[in-house]
Nucleic acid binder design. Structure first.
Length: 481
DNA sequence: CGAAATTTGGG
DNA sequence: CCAAATTTC
């Protein structure tokens, strides 16, 4: 075993971040095709995320996804090494220790990471290294699509039209057959040392429904194509059905490339209904739009996209009420079901996300940042771009915002999308004893509620009609009449 | 410029 | 049927 490429080739660091896969991984391919011996590394540096260090649910997913990546790398002859940041000095000391001549990574678009990575690239290049970043996360880089005036888009539909006009899917690239091993140090630290895994096992319920990692991502895609894609356009709105793709955490962690998903959808044309395929592609489009917005308007993670809301009269937060929302004890069944699904599984159906977000920002009148923060801490698919856009959209402060007078009525939503109360019964089991239609609006029969579900709140923390009126009042104030 | 268009709603 | 403002062409 002498004279192989691995013996004579210089090493390159392949810095894994949110691209936890071997297929369709341009940074890894750059190392291999550049003739380097890749040294796959992961650096734990949560402080570098600024105010948005990953939450516990996200960490729990990352732990498993990193373990899966390591397993996959080992099957290909390599392995993943973990280090504790800060990132730049860690990279520099690894370069010094290994003699690496290049550093490759795939881009992230969170403002704090964009700033950090720009600096790192400059520094590494300044010391004569090859440092290159690639796109592994998006169909379109955020700066690729512009209006005819050259501005970023602020409305989804024109954005997506421009995207479809520029549509050219990257070809899929299979995982490399073999990855030359790097057998020398430094060893790094064990994954467990990063303490990403919950210590008390509260995440147990998560893993009945999820398999983090590249294999799990491809399985989820197959399941979607064979199942929920047919009828997706309509079925995805019903939270008690398996009507969605459930790809969001896999996409967030880069366990599968969006162009892989898009190509797989396109390949179904003729089979599945074209409208279902278009609807699924559009959802990928929303993810693209969110990244476009975050890149061009990085301040929107904290501040209103629409600055007219800067003086808006949000309600003062009552900690007890906020906690009731977080724990699924508002007394509004569809809201509580959603919040409990989130707490139990690290995920919430998209339709219900809108309902609970509307209840928090409109009926309760709380600043969207309280909801955004809770979602950030509890979702396994927590994604700064999607989370920011979604919350600002519901609150009416965002790009392409819902008009202020559009206040979701949680009861109407429950009747439309959980008419049989199955979703409610699943996540708020104490209401399963209530017959329809009472299960959707138990406050209407206080006696029955007390008798059949004594543990459930006797009435909503904020009455639906009063909450709606208060919201409209606040928003009218903003307009000045 | 003016015109057309605008994620998922409510009553 | 209503409700508004802004974006984009």
């Amino acid at each position: 075993m002498s004279g192989t490429a691995a013996d004579t080739s210089p090493p390159a660091l392949v810095w894994f971040r949110n691209d936890l896969r071997l297929a369709d991984n341009p940074a890894l391919m750059a190392a291999i095709e550049g003739g380097y011996v890749p040294i796959p590394i992961h650096i734990h540096a949560p402080d570098e995320a600024g105010d948005w260090r990953p939450g516990a649910a996200s960490d729990a997913w990352r732990h498993r996804s990193l373990a899966a990546l390591d397993t996959a790398l080992r099957k290909h002859g390599s392995r993943l090494r973990h280090f504790v940041g800060p990132s730049l000095p860690t990279l520099q000391s690894l370069v010094a220790a290994t003699g690496a001549e290049a550093v490759f990574w795939n881009r992230r678009y969170e403002p704090a990471y964009e700033r950090r990575d720009t600096r790192i690239k400059q520094q590494l290049r300044g010391q004569g290294l090859r440092a290159e970043s690639f796109n592994a996360a998006l169909l379109f880089e955020p700066w690729m699509l512009r209006t005819k005036q050259g501005d970023p888009f602020k409305v989804f539909t024109p954005f997506w039209r421009a995207a479809l006009a520029a549509w050219r899917l990257a070809p899929g690239v299979d995982a490399p057959k073999a990855i030359p091993p790097w057998r020398e140090g430094p060893e790094g630290v064990p994954l467990a040392a990063l303490k990403l895994q919950p210590s008390r096992g509260w995440d147990r319920g998560f893993w009945e429904a999820w398999e983090p990692g590249e294999a799990g991502a491809h399985e989820a895609l197959e399941t979607f194509l064979e199942g929920a894609l047919r009828g997706y356009g309509e079925q995805r709105d019903f939270p008690d059905r398996a009507g969605t793709s459930r790809l969001s955490p896999h996409l967030h962690f880069g366990e599968i490339a969006p162009w892989r998903v898009a190509a797989a959808l396109e390949a179904q044309r003729g089979g599945a209904n074209g409208q279902d395929i278009d609807a699924a592609l559009r959802e990928l489009g929303w993810r693209e739009f969110a990244h476009h917005l975050l890149h061009h308007f990085p301040h929107t993670t904290e501040q209103n996209f629409n600055s007219r809301f800067d003086g808006f009269d949000w309600a003062r937060v009552s900690p007890a009420t906020l906690e009731a929302w977080q724990q699924g004890r508002t007394g509004v069944p569809i809201v509580d079901a959603g919040m409990r699904e989130l707490w139990s599984t690290g995920w919430m159906h998209n339709r219900v996300r809108m309902v609970v977000a509307s209840y928090l920002t409109k009926h309760l009148g709380y600043h969207w940042r309280h909801g955004a923060r809770w979602f950030w801490d509890t979702l396994v698919d927590a994604d700064l771009a999607n989370n920011t856009m979604g919350w600002q959209w519901v609150a009416g402060t965002g790009a392409d915002a819902a008009p202020y007078f559009r206040v979701f009525n949680p009861l109407t939503q429950a009747e439309k999308f959980d008419g049989q109360g199955r979703y409610i019964a699943r996540w708020v089991p104490e209401l399963a004893n209530l017959p329809l239609p009472l299960r959707l609006a138990p406050w209407r029969e206080p006696g029955e509620l007390r008798r059949l579900a004594p543990a459930y709140p006797p009435h909503p923390v904020v009455d639906l009609a009063a909450g709606r009126e208060a919201a409209l009042q606040r928003y009218r104030q903003l307009r000045g009449d």
